[in-house]
Design a binder for these strands. Structure first.
Lengths: 207, 207, 207, 207
DNA sequence: CTTTAAACGAGACGGTACGTCCTGTCTTATT
DNA sequence: AATAAGACAGGACGTACCGTCTCGTTTAAAG
């Protein structure tokens, strides 16, 4: 049990203001070019107030993502009973967002934050992938149980492959993006079934 | 045909010295913490000499990787005729190197460099993934022809999934790494076959 | 009335530390060779702290002189009632200091600073010559009233001639200095009387 | 006797081009801001060619002045037999030029060059003031002999006072300049006679 | 109410690195 | 051998942020 706080309590709206400032600047400048000084200024807040709440830029970004201030929405996946379909729907959310520059900026930022090294990388990994990963593993496990995915599936490895592909797609330059849709990707990964190709079927040339 | 060069020619050894300095500092400090000033100092070179040759830290790192000064070796894959086996062997090289801190540092650096934005990201993508990707696509195509991989395989998507997973494994903190071996991963991705699990078969606990 | 200051107030001792560092380096290296970086380092201060207070090297030097940190002492002249004698005594202070390397360094620095152009030159002129000039004009005026100097004396022109000679003596190389004493110079300028020559009377050869 | 020169002879026009480039840049940017690199570029010449001929910026400027490329004209003074009048005429040349910005820039540059310290200051002093000084001393000596100046005049000190005043007038900011004419100044210095004031006679207010 | 204690905006502070500019020297190929 | 061009090690420039540290002020709860 925490001791009753004394002195002036922290202003809860300040958190929001900072996270929103971070979100805007991230979209505008990218993670690297965004500075804590600029975040504070845009939030109309002293620098110390930022440092009092988060230890680093990476931590701010991680929180902004988790709090939903940044583009990637981690809504709970649907649970219709059809695990494969649910997974497709859910991943579709993410793959669909890869078209939006803001989302790409965020994922790039997270990757950059992860490379900052030190404990933040671990934190970020935990906070960012943690909850989503659990959902993913659940659905994969369910799919195996229901016989939708093959029994030998290494669900942890599968989860990593999904996350990794998502990350990779965000990092590569837009001109090189291959427009495979999420469902096709999932089939590729998990089923050995014919992936449903995008309408028209023909793959565009790489630049 | 290039114009005839005038004035004192650039010293080719200087390039090497700078790239090697970058390699060492990258391994020691990581991409973010490595400074151009330190690279110049370690190479025994003026800062301007660095800037004369590369426009940014990202560009230096990209070149260092391509020139083979940085840990990831992109040797040509073996061509035994068995495409699936060749691919396994070749990817094994990369996955095996994920255990070495220097290699991880490099991949993290490349990711960070890619997030630096601008044209360098594209350059980096082209130069880094380009050659390797061609090899990968070749082997995948061959495997499909020989019936080792299913006919419906989207080889571009498969290549992205492989690259992405490799990247993801390098970025996540060591404590969270799942020790699936390369062969198992490949089976997962391409075959729908039972992956060969590591001896003992039990998955270690996550931290 | 000035606006109420906000934020952390500037440390007044820091001003002193910087000015003293400038004084020392000026004496040691001369104005040209003295760098702002070295001033900051010697004062144990960040470079920005220097730039926050003064816009240029010239401005620092000007302030250092006015604050008395640099060698030229502009003590108020004596007021014995004998204006000519007072002037001689007072100017003697300055001419006497021309033998000290530190003083010469300062005057040279002021001249160099003046040539930096811009508004600082004006500032420097005002602040450096201003107060002393008033004293000089006062004494000259008094001397004319008392009949010690001829009635037709253009006191402003006389003041310029005095300042200019002082400056010139500081700028020329030591080997070329003529050792006329202050009193003799003054007589030359103002009285048409026989200057009191230095003991021995013979002028040394120029180099 | 010098050995017969071998190899390609120096181009004499190059000297001129460099000195003229220096003259132009001096007028445009001032001594401090003028760089040797810019001089070479403007003269259409390699940097080394400049360094082969002069050891320093100060030396270039000194030569530019002596060669008449820079504003101050040191024509020989007239010799009418009336030493005082000749001196007035001659000094009038200099004082008159103080109105031209280019001339002021040059004198300021010379002062700055003198403060560069080292041997260049001495060189510069010798080359710049040397020839003119001889002329000045000659006329002063002549004036004393003819009884135009008082017999007790210390001619070396008088020459310094004249040079110093000229220098001082060039260094002080234009707004502070007192418009005493040369003749009046000279009378002040040498004669104890009523100086001829400018028409109207009233001194303008200082800024 | 008054005291106490923390939060807050502001901005100074010692540092570090940035990317640019210039110095004076050194190679090139050319004249 | 001199030249135009330009690379080179070095070093200072003035700027931007870092993360920390005062300031004076504000806001609650405790006395």
């Amino acid at each position: 049990m925490t001791a009753k706080p004394r002195g002036r309590p922290r202003n809860a709206q300040t958190d929001t203001a900072i996270l929103e400032a971070a979100r805007d600047l991230m979209a505008a400048d990218g993670y690297e070019r965004m500075t804590i000084e600029a975040i504070a200024a845009r939030a109309g807040v002293g620098k110390q107030t930022v440092y009092r709440r988060w230890p680093s830029k990476a931590a701010i970004v991680a929180e902004a993502v988790m709090a939903g201030h940044l583009g990637i929405r981690a809504d709970a996946p649907p649970r219709t009973g059809d695990a494969a379909a649910d997974l497709r729907t859910w991943l579709g959310q993410f793959f669909g967002q890869l078209g939006q520059p803001a989302t790409v900026a965020v994922i790039r930022g997270l990757a950059a934050a992860a490379t900052d090294g030190g404990t933040e990388a671990e934190q970020l990994y935990e906070r960012f992938t943690g909850p989503g990963r659990e959902q993913m593993l659940d659905l994969l496990r369910l799919g195996v149980e229901h016989g939708q995915f093959r029994a030998s599936l290494d669900i942890e490895a599968a989860a990593d492959a999904i996350s990794g592909t998502l990350l990779y797609r965000a990092l590569i330059p837009p001109s090189a993006v291959v427009d495979t849709d999420a469902a096709g990707f999932l089939d590729l990964l998990l089923l050995g079934m014919t992936p449903r190709t995008s309408p028209g079927g023909t793959r565009p040339e790489r630049r």
